[in-house]
Design a binder for these strands. Structure first.
Length: 424
RNA sequence: GUGGGAAUAGCUCAACUGGCAGAGCACCGGACUGUGGCUCCGACGGUUGCGGGUUCGAUUCCCGUUUCCCACCCCA
């Protein structure tokens, strides 16, 4: 038997109804904030992610699905391509390619699969889905403003609340500008030097490769040491600090609760200044339901003009997992089961079903080979509200037996009144 | 990439120390000819993840392997 490959999975009904529930809620909320959809390719030139996400990140260094796409002709040299591991780089590429700065501020969202070759776990798949949104444009259009950061965060709070996910936590930090981080990193290395020998092996490695990640350490014995380390906050430049203060002020004003987490660091190189995560319990070790932040230098790193931006990625798989709503609760069941009765009635039933469907009635259609008892069983199993019998008597009278399957009430309804009766 | 647990019918799970692979639910049919749910009866359903080994005999013990789960790492 051929099975879905490791780390991928089929989403089957009725669970897919939950995914549609999430996606349509997201689209509704995005519309209210004037975000518009962008769709970028699922694979891109490998170089885009290497330069955008960062060569040194785990994503680029060891998790990408990359292959050499061979040329088909002498003039076509072939190139290294990669399945997108995240959405932002592709969107910024499109921003540059189509000169979207001519439109001023761009508020874009994108929903689709991403690919990372990690060891699968609950809430972590090799093909997974993200709901992604970005605000990007020239600084003159306000893309730089703390108002945009706050707007994005408030929008996320609205979306989660609307989905019925009430017990989320917003963790907020500023990781400063690249210049701020150079200073911070140097200070961190210096502070770690005399202490690192007492720390766990992971931290000893991090201290060399990426000192920021020491803050991620969960080993209890290391915590007192980590508490003594310098904090990024102490190294923020005047602009970064003011920006961060302004974001917090607006959030407080609009009533979105958050927690400053000075230890929040992010694994993609492009993040600057505001960085955030929304977490949720009951997700196990993968407790981050979404994450994001500013990437003020990304466009320039990709060869474009200065274009500050802020965005986030929601882990849709994890979002669906943390939903209280059940698939049964959001799936739309048939309004009516149309039951052809007696040989040759399929045509009449199909005609009636067509009329009802044109009135936006959800119709399940039976088969005239079924005995009436079997039609009733099928209607009940399908969860239909009504069953509509299309037999010889009914066709002759042009009025049909309509039975409410819950109450057992049965009436004869003229053809023209059926849709209204079923929907009412 | 590292460490641990698990894998038996479509689903949830049994099967003593190695001795004929089972139940509930679901599905299909019947009781019941144009009236469902409830009930009763019946049928279907398996290379016990895969490959090898030990044994008279392996779902059971051993080795390998794959996948899933948990944790690390990292991230959404």
């Amino acid at each position: 038997m051929i099975k879905a490959v490791r780390g991928t999975r089929d989403l089957l009904p009725p669970e897919t109804a939950l995914w549609n529930f999430v996606e349509s809620a997201a689209r509704d909320v995005f519309r209210a904030y004037n975000f518009q959809e962008i769709r970028t390719p699922i694979f891109e030139a490998t170089e885009l992610f290497a330069r955008g996400v960062g060569e040194e990140t785990d994503i680029v260094a060891k998790e990408m699905y990359t292959w050499e796409d061979r040329g088909r002709a002498a003039s076509d040299s072939g190139q290294s391509l990669t399945l997108r591991p995240e959405a932002t780089a592709g969107i910024v590429r499109a921003y540059i390619e189509h000169k979207l700065w001519d439109r001023g501020l761009n508020k874009l969202y994108c929903i689709g699969p991403m690919f990372r070759r990690e060891r699968p776990q609950k809430g972590r798949y090799r093909q997974f889905y993200q709901i992604d949104a970005e605000v990007i444009g020239p600084a003159s259009a306000g893309s730089d403003s703390p108002a945009r950061d706050a707007e994005v965060l408030e929008m996320l709070a609205t979306l989660l609340d609307r989905l019925g996910i009430s017990d989320w936590n917003l963790e907020l930090n500023s990781v400063g500008t690249p210049a701020d981080r150079v200073q911070f990193n140097a200070a961190l290395r210096k502070a770690l030097e005399p202490l690192v020998a007492q720390m766990c092996t992971d931290c000893q490695r991090r201290a060399v490769t990426n000192p920021l990640r020491v803050f991620d350490c969960k080993v209890p014995e290391d915590q007192p040491i980590i508490d003594t380390l310098p904090r990024i906050t102490q190294f923020l430049g005047e602009d970064s600090r003011k920006h961060f203060d302004a974001v917090q002020e607006i959030l407080t004003r609009v009533g979105v609760s958050f927690r400053i987490n000075e230890r929040l660091v992010r694994g993609l190189d492009y993040y600057t200044r505001t960085a955030f995560e929304f977490t949720h319990g009951a997700l196990g070790a993968q407790n981050a339901i979404l994450g994001g932040g500013r990437y003020d230098g990304l466009s320039e790193a990709l060869g474009g003009p200065a274009a500050p931006g802020i965005g986030f990625a929601i882990g849709e798989d994890r979002l669906v997992m943390s939903l209280k709503e059940t698939a049964e609760g959001v799936v739309r069941k048939p309004d009516v089961y149309v039951a052809p009765l007696g040989a040759g009635m399929n045509g009449e039933a199909a005609k009636l079903a067509r009329e009802l469907r044109h009135h936006d009635v959800v119709v399940e259609l039976g088969d005239d080979a079924f005995r009436l008892k079997k039609s009733f069983e099928a209607a009940t199993k399908a969860g239909a509200k009504y069953i509509l019998i299309v037999g010889e008597n009914e066709v002759k009278a042009d009025a049909f037996a309509l039975k409410n399957l819950a109450t057992g009430e049965q009436v004869s309804v003229p053809r023209g009144e059926l849709a209204q009766r079923i929907q009412g």
